[in-house]
Design a protein around this nucleic acid. Structure first.
Lengths: 226, 226
DNA sequence: CGAAATATTTCGTATGCACTAAATTCGGAC
DNA sequence: GTCCGAATTTAGTGCATACGAAATATTTCG
C-alpha cells in the first residue's frame, strides 16, 4: 500500500501485530505466542496472521517456528516498545491535556500511534512531566525503550475474601467496561478490600472508597491489583 | 489496504488527492484540475492518479470527464475542507502548544491529518481559541466547513518596485524554504516594501523590518502578499 | 487540415493486507 | 502407536495503491 507513514517503514498493521505479540508474551509467561492468540487479539482471520507473521519474520522482527508460534527478536521488542510508548503517551496526553474521557482515548491513540513521530511523542511526554504510567495504569516505556512492567500483579478475580490491595491497572480496550468500572469507583490507585465472593462464579463484593460494590468475575478479571 | 482509519472510510491517499484537487482548483482560477497537475502535486505517476480519480469519482467526490480533468463535487469539497481543517489546526497546535518550529510541522500534520478524529481536532482548535489562520497564514476552515480564502492576493514576485504590503501567507511544504524565509524575516503579518527588482529575473530587494533583504523571484513566488 | 507533440488512459505487474476454503501438521486420547 | 480433532498453513481471491510501457485522445502548430 505504500501508506502514509513515518520514515521507519513499518505499516500500521505490522506495528499492531508487534504490539500484540509483545502483550501476549507478557501475559503468557514466556511461552511462544500462537497464531490463534494473535488472530483473536487483532480480530483477524488466522490465515491473515500467518501472512503478517511471515512478513515480520522476513524483516527480522520476530522468530517464527512454523506451527509453533512466534517470539519477538530484540529488534522486534524495541519496535513494539516504541509503538507502546507512542500509544500510552498519546492516551495520557489526550486525557490530561485535551480533556478526553479515559474511556475514549484508546481508539484515538490506536490510530495516532502509527502516524505520530517520536519527536511529537517526546514533546507530549515532556509536557506531561514524563509520566510513568498512562491513565489506565499501564507503564510507559522510556524514550530509550526501557519499561518497568511492575510486579506481575494479580487479577482482582483471583483474590480471596479479606484480601486488600490497590488497583494497579485496568484493561483499556473497551470503553463500556471502562465507564462501568469508573462508575463503580474502580480505577488505578484506588484502595480496596475484597469483602465477599459469591460461589459458583457469582459476583464479588468489594469495598471501594467506603462503599460496597459488586461486580462479576469476568469484569474483575480485567482489573489488575497489587 | 483496509487501513487503520477514522470511521469515515476514506483512505489517506484518497484524502490527499481530494486536498490536492481543492488546492489546485483554488490556484487555477476555475479551470478543471488536470491529471498531470495532480500527479505533479502528489508526486505520483500520472497513471496512478487516473486510478485514484476513478475511485473518487465512483464515490461521488469528484466529477471526472475523461481526458478533461476533474472537479470536486459538493460532497468532495466538504471532505477536502475537513482534511484541510485537520491539517491546519494540527499545524497550529504543534507550533503554538508543543513548540515545533514552523518549518517542521507540515510533514507531521500531513500524517496526523488522516488519523486524528474531528473531536480531537476540535479540542485542539478550542485550546487555541479557534484561530482563523495557521502558522503559514493559510485560513483554517471551520468545523462546519466554511473557509474564508481571503482576497486572492498576489505573489511577492509579481509586485513592482515601490509597492508596499503585508505578507499574508507562505507555502508550507518545504522546510528549507521556510527556514530561509524566516532568516530573511519574511513571515505572515510582516510589513514590507519592494525596493528594487533586478532585470532579467534577477533578485528582488525588499525592505523588511527596516532592513533590506534580497531574494530570488522563484522564492518570492511562494510568498503571497496583500 | 493534417501531423507532431503532449496529455491521458489502458494494460500488465507488484506489494500489502484482508478473506474463505482446503490442505497439512501437531498433540493428545485411546 | 495410531488416529482424531484442533491449530496452522497453503491456496486462491479481491481491493487499494503504486509503477512503467503501450495505446489513445487532445491540442498545437505548420
Amino acid at each position: 500500500m505504500t501508506a502514509v507513514q513515518r520514515t521507519d517503514g513499518l505499516t500500521a498493521p505490522a506495528e499492531d501485530c508487534l504490539k500484540a505479540v509483545y502483550e501476549l508474551e507478557r501475559a503468557g509467561a514466556g511461552a511462544p505466542v500462537t497464531t490463534n492468540d494473535l488472530a483473536h487479539r487483532l480480530a483477524l482471520a488466522a490465515a491473515s496472521v500467518t501472512g503478517m507473521v511471515k512478513r515480520l519474520a522476513g524483516l527480522g522482527l520476530i522468530d517464527h517456528a512454523r506451527y509453533h508460534g512466534v517470539r519477538l527478536t530484540e529488534q522486534g521488542r524495541r519496535t513494539a516498545l516504541r509503538t507502546l510508548r507512542r500509544h500510552r503517551v498519546i492516551e495520557t496526553y489526550l486525557v490530561s491535556v485535551l480533556g478526553f474521557g479515559w474511556d475514549r482515548v484508546h481508539a484515538e491513540a490506536e490510530r495516532l500511534e502509527h502516524s505520530a513521530s517520536d519527536e511529537l511523542v517526546d514533546r507530549m511526554a515532556t509536557a506531561l512531566g514524563n509520566p510513568a504510567v498512562d491513565p489506565h495504569g499501564a507503564p510507559i516505556p522510556t524514550r530509550e525503550g526501557r519499561i518497568v512492567e511492575g510486579p506481575p500483579g494479580r487479577a482482582l478475580s483471583d483474590l480471596a475474601p479479606g484480601d486488600r490491595g490497590r488497583v494497579a491497572r485496568v484493561e483499556d480496550d473497551d470503553p463500556e467496561r471502562l465507564r462501568y468500572l469508573a462508575s463503580l469507583g474502580i480505577m488505578p490507585g484506588v484502595e480496596f478490600e475484597l469483602l465477599e465472593r459469591a460461589p459458583f462464579g457469582g459476583p464479588l463484593t468489594v469495598r471501594v472508597d467506603g462503599a460496597a460494590r459488586q461486580l462479576g468475575p469476568q469484569l474483575a478479571a480485567h482489573v489488575v491489583v497489587i
